[in-house]
Amino acid sequence: MIAGIRSVLAECGGLAVDAETLAINDDLYAAGLTSHGCVGLMLGLEEEFDVEFPEKLLNRRTFESIAAIRDAVRGLVDGGEA
């Protein structure tokens, strides 16, 4: 899953750095993720993992790190709302 998240990040996140170099707890906003970038990132994640982010996950914290994204996506894949 981490590899999938990294590839979506690289493709849709508009980061200032190479997504492969990020540790899973690195702050993505410090890596250049913007609110505009979040939108692309979320759409990319929905496509990649065939999930839909509910309203309550649509905030900055959900996308603050690769680990946070993994937890959110895992919750959605498991059928809950993370």
């Binding site: 609110s35 505009h36 939108v39 979320m42 759409l43 982010f53 509910p54 309203e55 649509l58």
Partner: peptide
């Protein structure tokens, strides 16, 4: 223009 981008991902509130 910013709102229209955000609307790509917005859902109905509860």
């Amino acid at each position: 223009s910013h709102i229209s981008t955000q609307l790509l991902v917005q859902r109905d509130g509860s």
